[in-house]
Design a protein around this nucleic acid. Structure first.
Lengths: 225, 225
DNA sequence: TTCTGAGTTTAGGCTCGCCTAACTTATGAC
DNA sequence: GTCATAAGTTAGGCGAGCCTAAACTCAGAA
């Protein structure tokens, strides 16, 4: 068996990850979006798209954008599993904080073997989410669906549990950790000012006023109050 | 500060490691040796040697061979530290056996950050040797000197402690582990047949007869008997 | 319906790191 | 001292992956 994933370069893996993130079943990813995401010139992306669609990793409709094929999605999910498990391992086993793991994982995800990834998973007891609350795809590529609502879309008075944090900015992450606004925390929305105004949120420890941008990064599961 | 080591490719790191291994203060590494070691065509090595000597990482005397400059040696030792610490970590923390860690470390050594390497070192209590008994260079690049003699060069009746194992062949390593011939083991040479004949060696548990090739891979520190 | 501009693709060029083929150098046998 | 040969180097080529500049497409405004 010679799986496609055996011969992929680091670059290709990054393209597929980016396209996975930027596209959906109903919306293809555009050349310029991908270029932006990877910090490359659009022309470079066009070239790579051509190669990858010839390899059967994505579908390309000229001037319209790209979607992953099942094979391409398989690769992307494999990278996502690696990335999130590596982040989890670095935090749990080597004392990294959640605002510093991203770059390290970004490099390691291309270098680790499947064996090592699964050993890390076992050592952690096969976690289902990473330190930011993002779900870890299973080895066969399934991702649990969850219903989440941004803190900015909740109604005042409602309670919820923080599920995921949608930023990777170290400053944001450190600030959120300082306030106790981390995955698993129980919160109640107290006030929401209009026009992207600040949000007042109560944790089990304290009450904080946070900016709209920060609140929008917090994805929550609402609870009966 | 922009250290040279910030911009090196995986390939360059491998060349420097190979040259470190193949050369000494008195003997330069030859083009064909390096090519052999890296499984490349000699012409490719010639090309890379040119680039690396222009970068100040090695000294090249045409048709004579290459030596590392202090800067080149610094890079090589940094890679060696990484490699050996990664091997140590994988064995100690993730249950790898000493015959399977090499390939994994070979890829990871190019991807880890200095920070991660030092965290692994700390987690292990800053070991001085790796699972094969090879010394781990310190962060500043110093390598402890040790006096070692191959089992094939010892006199019958003499006792010793196994320091290092000079092979990476998984089959050899597994076999040695089965016999208890691992770093730290106390042994006594019982018999040595001439003409590269078999060696009889006694451990604390048993007595084994091993082939010359295997015995030559065992580097020992002799002890008073 | 035509035109314009944003977005996309093509054309051509570059470096890295490898290759093979052809040439050059050093060395040791005679 | 000459010369055959092994070792090393140069020349030229290729794919990956990036770039800039130029050409093309599509969609929305006039």
């Amino acid at each position: 068996m010679t799986a496609v994933s055996d011969t992929l370069t680091r670059s290709v893996e990054d393209y597929l990850k980016a396209i996975y993130r930027l596209s959906s079943d109903i919306r293809p990813a555009s050349t310029s979006e991908i270029a932006q995401h990877l910090a490359l010139a659009p022309a470079s992306v066009s070239g790579m798209i051509k190669r990858l669609s010839e390899q059967g990793l994505l579908e390309h409709e000229r001037y319209r954008g790209v979607q992953l094929t099942p094979e391409g999605r398989r690769v992307a999910l494999r990278m996502l599993r690696r990335h999130r498990l590596i982040e989890s391992y670095l935090v749990a086993a080597l004392g990294y904080s959640w605002d510093t793991v991203h770059d390290e994982a970004e490099r390691l995800e291309h270098a680790v073997s499947d064996d090592l990834v699964e050993r890390m998973a076992d050592a952690l007891g096969n976690p289902r989410v990473d330190p930011h609350g993002d779900p870890i795809p299973s080895p066969d590529g399934s991702v649990p669906e969850t219903v989440e609502v941004a803190l900015t879309d909740m109604e005042p008075g409602h309670s919820a549990r923080i599920h995921r944090v949608r930023t990777r900015e170290p400053e944001f992450l450190r600030h959120l950790a300082d306030l106790g606004l981390i995955p698993g925390a129980h919160i109640t929305l107290r006030d929401r000012r209009p026009f992207l105004g600040p949000i007042t949120v109560e944790t089990d420890q304290a009450t904080h006023v946070v900016g709209h941008e920060l609140a929008a990064a917090l994805l929550c599961a609402e609870e009966e109050s």
